[in-house]
Design a protein around this nucleic acid. Structure first.
Lengths: 221, 221
DNA sequence: TAGATTGTTAATCGATTAACAATC
DNA sequence: TAGATTGTTAATCGATTAACAATC
């Protein structure tokens, strides 16, 4: 009768408000820690307090994940964790290739926490002969000349850029030509990409500006 | 007569919308590049195109910096750059101390771009005897035991945390005890701080989630 | 002068917060 | 049952977008 009956469902999958999307991983971290501390049930008031948010916001955020709580008791910690994992797709592993084996690149390459979020960095690439062929924490550093071939052969969707600003645009183009669909850019340049390619520009300068602005504000009070 | 006459002015200094605040450094980067390319005047349409924004948003954002343009001609590139520098305080240097001389710590310590934003990382600290005493790009790595003393003597306001998650809370406390007023946290933990202390929690997991969510959305289309 | 572009006021949109009913 | 906590609908707030007048 009503062929829009699955509307809510579709909306749930596709439409998560961006601010909520950015907070969900934080809930995830927090709840995993609480769970490890043996907390089986948790109320949104207590989550809010622990994370510096308001209880209403916590309720609204958790709602989009499909998590349900019980009045008077709260949420089952494990169930919420599962809801978030499900909602953000942490359980299906996504392979990625990283380009730029400098300090930042190695920091990301060696960070074991990404596994929690379903990200698997397969290998790193560089153009420095001194680095090519080396291993870092079990991950190989390969010649950038081999990037395209490997990316295509393994059908990799995600590329991570950790090269200096001057080379970022070139690497970005190389990635797109090699079939990469999502680019996580840590170089301090705003990269623009064609329709159909997803880009996430990290920008420490932006965060720094927020920090120093708030420091200034705090001083004035 | 009207002692609220300076209201707008005060509001300008204190009240920049957070989304705008995060975009201003990106305009700054972009405009500096355009200026280096010899572009003396630039319209908001052209900025918008180059950065993937809308012209109206650019106009609104630049407005909070106090930058003024000329109808038909556009903005004087250099003037806008100065306005942003003024507005975000890039010209008064802010000293910072960094704790955790791992890959990420060294990446930040060695990044010369911070100078543009007025940030000067004075030195790094670690507890690893193998690292203590070393230098990286002209910056010393000191014993964490000396942190408090140096922070107080130099009256440092900003602390940068690049230690593993497990140590982040301790380092955060150490910083607060040592008189640090603003903390830039790169450890994958949500740190909460007392009233009067400013905290900026970086979170790669949050960005990663946005990226992979958008990749998912793009695939569904 | 004519037209392009800024500056500003109003309308829309989305996220947060508040209020309250439902329920264990 | 009584009371605490969830779930949901409405109200508020802030940011973005649209419309248009001002101006070089």
């Amino acid at each position: 009768m009503d062929n829009f009956s699955s509307k809510d469902n579709v909306a749930n999958i596709i439409k998560i408000p961006k601010p909520t999307l950015r907070r969900l991983p934080l809930y995830y971290q927090y709840l995993k820690r609480e769970m490890a501390l043996g907390r089986e049930f948790i109320s949104c008031t207590s989550i809010a307090e622990g994370m510096g948010l308001t209880p209403i916001q916590v309720r609204k955020d958790l709602q989009v994940t499909g998590a349900v709580g019980k009045p008077k008791i709260g949420y089952h910690t494990g169930a919420v964790i599962s809801s978030i994992e499900e909602c953000l797709g942490y359980k299906n592993t996504k392979d990625a290739l990283l380009v730029g084996a400098g300090n930042l690149g190695l920091a990301l390459l060696g960070y074991e926490g990404f596994a929690d979020y379903g990200l698997n960095i397969v290998a790193a690439f560089d153009n420095d002969p001194a680095k090519i062929g080396m291993e870092y924490r079990g991950k190989k550093i390969l010649d950038i000349a081999k990037f395209s071939d490997l990316a295509r052969r393994m059908n990799i969707q995600i590329g991570i850029i950790t090269v200096p600003a001057s080379q970022a645009v070139n690497i970005c183009n190389l990635m797109i030509e090699s079939g990469i669909k999502a680019i996580w850019n840590f170089a301090p340049v705003l990269l623009s990409v064609p329709e159909g390619i997803v880009i996430q520009n990290e920008n420490v300068a932006a965060s720094l500006s927020v920090l120093s602005q708030e420091l200034l504000k705090a001083k004035q009070e």
